[in-house]
Simulated assay, not measured.
Amino acid sequence: MIESATLYIVPTPIGNLDDISPRALETLKSVNWIAAEDTRHTHKLLQHFTISTRTMSLHEHNEDKRTAMLCQRLKEGESVALVSDAGTPLISDPGFVLVRRCREEGINVIALPGPCAAITALSASGLPTDRFMFEGFLPPKTGPRSHVLETLKERTFTTVYYEAPRRVLDTINDVKKTLGNERHIVLAKELTKTFETYVVGSAESVAEWLEADPVRQKGEFVLMISGVEDVPRELPPEALALLSSLKPVLPLKKAAAIVAEHYNLKKNALYQAGLDMDDSQH
């Protein structure tokens, strides 16, 4: 049952049309309007499922203008479904401005669960999923892209990116230059489609796979990069002894920094050790 005066966030297939849910189909059939990232693309989906609901475009170039119009229609009691070209709207796709405005103005928003390339790829990657960060698309130029990749040097958890076919090889090469060749890389290509592929290995081996056949550089990609292995180092007794002697005369943060520099250890580990000393004395 569709509610009036409600914005529905409706995920659509990322490749295989069978992945659309019965609830998503019923919603698209029943709302007054479908706001689509590209109406031409969405019409193909609607025609396939014999859906005749009216559509209007909502993309990055007209989102502010369309948001005002749609909010007015929603307040007047109409229902709207928001879709992107593929997957879950707002995940590296338009829709944030509209959803935020609806929340600000008390308009009901209901999100349907459904396809999302980042989550689909991650779940089959074999990389740790207990903690991860999705960062959308990397910058298109090497300089800014390498700067972003620099932030992964100390990151201990999986990072997920989308990447365009014309940049995927350059990006993998930048991963190798910036992070070295020890990181575990998984490149997912054409998810849920006929030529779905997962390429697993080092940045060098993944780049070699892409270079072996130019066709491999076509399609939609999800790039996943493992974090650095977080192996806690045992703090040497002499470092703990120095920390213990400095604690009464210096702030713990300063004491930890001095000991860390002297013994080439991590400040955070020493700071925590100092806190543990305090706890053990209570």
Rank of each mutant, 00 (worst) to 15 (best):
R73D: 03
A164S: 13
A111D: 11
G87P: 01
V206G: 07
I34W: 00
K176G: 04
I14T: 00
D278S: 04
T142L: 13
L270S: 02
A255Q: 03
A212S: 15
I185P: 00
E204D: 11
E261N: 14
S244Q: 15
S30V: 02
R155P: 03
E60Y: 10
L179S: 02
S205H: 12
I20L: 03
R54C: 01
W33H: 02
A24M: 00
L98N: 02
L138T: 06
A164G: 03
G219T: 06
D279R: 15
L242Y: 07
M1T: 01
L112N: 03
F195Q: 10
I2G: 01
E190L: 03
V206T: 11
L242G: 01
E208I: 08
S57N: 11
T67Y: 05
P11E: 06
P89V: 10
N268C: 02
F49K: 11
G77A: 08
K254F: 09
R233K: 14
K193T: 02
I51M: 14
I258L: 15
Y198W: 14
A124M: 15
L265C: 09
P214F: 13
L252D: 13
P248S: 15
A81R: 00
N173I: 07
E135S: 13
A117G: 01
T142P: 04
P94G: 07
M69P: 00
E229W: 06
Y263M: 10
G114R: 04
I14L: 01
P236A: 13
K29H: 14
L270P: 03
K193G: 01
V97C: 03
H282T: 04
K218I: 08
K189Q: 14
L191Q: 04
A203D: 04
D64H: 12
I107P: 02
T42H: 10
V199E: 11
F221Y: 05
K193I: 03
N264C: 14
G15S: 05
H48G: 07
H61R: 14
E105N: 11
G136Y: 09
P232W: 12
M277F: 15
L250T: 11
L240T: 08
V31R: 00
T88D: 10
T42V: 05
V99N: 02
G180T: 13
P144L: 02
H43M: 12
V175T: 04
I172G: 09
T194A: 12
D278R: 09
D85Q: 07
A81W: 00
Q72W: 04
L235T: 13
V148L: 03
